[in-house]
Design a protein around this nucleic acid. Structure first.
Length: 698
DNA sequence: GACTTGTTCTT
DNA sequence: AGAACAAGT
């Protein structure tokens, strides 16, 4: 190594020194990278790098940042208890650079970390591995996040699955079980890190402090708390999950997703414990409880599948998987987008959901489907906007899961929902919220409306509305888009989509050369201003420890009470107490627009609305998959054949999935030649993570 | 017991 | 839309 030992903060004796790089695996238990480091007996340098600029528009939102900060404190305390010095933290615009620096600072000889599967991490980790290897550092990476690595789960022909059901069936019938969870290491051998510089990481700014303090009332990040929550769920709501999961409030759900997202909880431990419960209940003949386990495991399966999909189709967070969807003429209407975010669409269930999301950073899975389906099918807004808003506001924001969810809703999965069938929020309302309690909790304006009308106030007799103190169009909006109008518009849009698709096919077969697709690519619809505010537009300064706010949306500001019990006690009573003032709880930017403007907007929506052709007019040509066989990158095929235990030195590297029956219809996000890097093939990912900027800072 | 008709679910 | 399932003829 080129660094002299005198400059090393760890003392510099010639032993094995291992940097354990924590990311979204903020736990001590069942953490393969940490366990391997502890077992190796060398000195362990636990490290965390905060480099949000790398994530481009998908850098963590306020609530996520709050969670990280809490979780890191918890992790640090745990590590110290085990004998580790301290969690070394670094602030950088480039995690790879920061780690190289840390390796030099500490004289580390090894770097261990656990795998991630989002497109940004796949590329970054691959680069890290190459650069460390070039410096003679040993890199080992591990599976901590999944039951099985994506490349382990393939169909009978050895191809990746393109549908969830067969994927999950295969996971459940693999010839070997997912590894049993590891216990926390008994002792971590620490070098002397007292001189090793750490940066203070700042995850919130002044304006966020108040809101964040409220989060702490409802959530306790940290792996040990995650473990407690897990136990509570397994012994409590799990048994009734199959009966209760339809209810819109969160009493029946596990509330574990933020813990899972940050890796505070090991899915494998989770999986094994649920399976044990299932076995017990099965033996007892408790059919409902057994079914609950099956259903719950399925939701773990969806999480697995989201990583699987992201690995096999790295652009699935920005481009529809089914090629024809790229021609869908999304309606670019920022006003509707705003009304949706504010919970002012005139459809009570949708509005209640959006207000809960804003207020708490949480939404029941069913309601997520309702609001996103409304977004995509009734408003026909670009799905990426909705996904980005979810990303910014959800406490469990997770790029892979959210991409899967939105692709599902958009009809971009071979086994997803059809795009052309509009769900009726009124019917869904009576399904998920039969007594209107959920709506009344989040839309106090409607609190006095009888259940009969609660999900369709526009049908209510004037006398009923008057008695309830509701004046539609002023107190509470009329539907911003009528369902019938939406259906008609959707049909139009779909036929336009098919026409464009056919036209592109014609162009393609008209003798354009194959493979020109990528260069003429039309970028996806830009995010509107409101969604860009969280991106730091300043040129990033290395090591600058600035909070990343250039222009910030007005913060979420309602107390965060996620357990419905808490909610019932505090917020409801507060809401009902003074129904006049509760508007203060409704998210809005600066002010409510005057009524007149709203009427305009409604008319506007029903008349010709501004549209732009979704994406890619010229170039959506599916790459003919000539290279199927040789399409697997060497490192991956090596990995899939030699991967037995956890001790891999293999970093998952994206490689194009070979064609299977379905991938004919899949968009060509994974064009061709295997020898080129993922980045060469994915110009959009360059854009996403500002690759050029990162390269320059090297 | 083979038919209907209705309901729920789909990532 | 279509499959799987339930409950009624």
């Amino acid at each position: 190594m080129s660094v002299s030992s005198s400059s090393m903060c760890g003392g510099g004796e010639t032993g094995m020194r291992i940097v354990v790089w924590f990311r979204r695996d903020l736990r001590v238990e069942d953490n393969p990278a940490l366990a391997a480091a502890a077992r190796a007996g060398g000195e362990v340098v636990p490290a965390y790098v905060w480099s949000p600029e790398e994530d481009g528009p998908y850098h963590p939102g306020r609530v996520s940042r709050w969670w990280i900060s809490q979780s890191l404190q918890h992790l640090d305390a745990s590590l110290r208890r085990l004998g580790a010095g301290k969690l070394v933290t670094r602030r950088s615009t480039d995690a790879v650079v920061a780690l190289l620096q840390l390796v030099r600072d500490t004289g580390a000889t090894h770097v261990y970390f656990n795998h991630l599967y989002d497109p940004i991490s796949l590329v970054r980790d691959h680069r890290l591995k190459e650069m460390l290897a070039a410096e003679g550092i040993v890199v080992q990476s591990f599976n901590a996040d999944l039951l099985y690595e994506p490349w382990e789960v393939v169909d009978d022909e050895g191809q990746p699955f393109t549908m969830f059901a067969p994927f999950w069936n295969r996971c459940l019938s693999m010839p070997y079980d997912p590894p049993a969870p590891l216990l926390p290491p008994k002792k971590i051998n620490s070098g002397n890190l007292s001189m090793c510089p750490s940066d203070d990481l700042i995850f919130e700014d002044e304006s966020e402090r108040g809101s964040n303090a409220l989060l702490a009332r409802a959530w306790t990040p940290g792996w040990q708390n995650a473990d407690k929550a897990l136990t509570a769920f397994l012994n409590g709501p799990l048994a009734d999950y199959s009966v209760n999961r339809k209810k819109a409030d969160s009493a029946s759900t596990s509330l574990l997703s933020p813990h899972l997202h940050f890796g505070e909880l090991s899915v494998r431990k989770f999986f094994h414990l649920v399976r044990m419960k299932q076995l017990v209940w099965s033996n007892e003949g408790n059919h409902a409880a057994e079914e609950s386990c099956t259903l719950f495991l399925r939701s773990i399966g969806l999480r697995e599948y989201s990583r699987y999909l992201s690995f096999n189709h790295p652009s699935s967070h920005e481009r529809p998987l089914l090629a024809h969807l790229r021609f869908f003429p999304w309606v670019v209407d920022e006003w509707h987008f705003k009304l949706w975010r504010q919970g002012r669409t005139g459809y009570p269930l949708v509005d209640a959901g959006m207000r809960e999301l804003w207020a708490t950073g949480w939404l029941h899975d069913r309601i997520r489907v309702v609001v996103s389906s409304f977004f995509v099918k009734v408003l026909q807004l670009p799905w990426r906007w909705g996904m980005k808003y979810f990303w910014d506001t959800l406490l469990d924001a997770d790029l892979e899961s959210d991409a899967l969810g939105w692709q599902y809703i958009t009809g971009s999965l071979p086994d997803g929902r059809e795009l052309d069938r509009i769900d009726n929020p009124q019917f869904e309302g009576y399904k998920f919220d039969p007594h209107g309690e959920y709506v009344r909790r989040w839309i106090p304006e409607l609190a006095r409306l009888p259940t009969e009308w609660i999900h369709h106030p526009w049908d209510a007799p004037v006398s009923v509305l008057q008695a309830a103190g509701i004046e539609l169009g002023s107190n509470y909006p009329l539907p911003i888009v009528e369902l019938d109008a939406a259906k008609a518009r959707l049909q139009e849009a779909l036929s336009e989509m098919w026409q464009l698709e056919a036209a592109s096919r014609a162009t393609m077969s008209n003798g354009m050369e194959e493979g020109l697709g990528d260069s003429s690519e039309v970028p996806p619809i830009e995010f509107p201003q409101e969604l860009q505010m969280e991106v730091d537009r300043q040129p990033a300064q290395a090591m600058a420890n600035v909070p990343m706010t250039a222009r910030r949306r007005q913060d979420q500001m309602v107390p965060t009470m996620t357990s419905s019990l808490n909610r019932a006690e505090t917020e409801v009573s507060a809401d009902l107490g003074n129904s006049e003032d509760t508007r203060a709880q409704v998210p809005f930017h600066a002010h409510f627009e005057p009524r007149v403007e709203r009427q305009d907007a409604i008319q506007n929506a029903e008349g010709p609305a501004p549209r732009i052709n979704g994406v890619h007019q010229n170039n959506i040509f599916q790459q003919p998959q000539h290279h199927r066989r040789e399409a697997v990158a060497p490192s991956v095929s090596e990995a899939s054949s030699s991967w037995t235990g956890r001790e891999g030195a293999v970093v998952p590297v994206w490689s194009p999935p070979a064609a299977s029956g379905h991938s004919e219809t899949f968009a060509a996000d994974e064009a061709d030649v295997s020898s080129r890097s993922y980045l060469d093939r994915h110009p959009q990912s360059h854009r996403l993570m500002n690759w050029s900027q990162l390269s320059q800072s090297l």
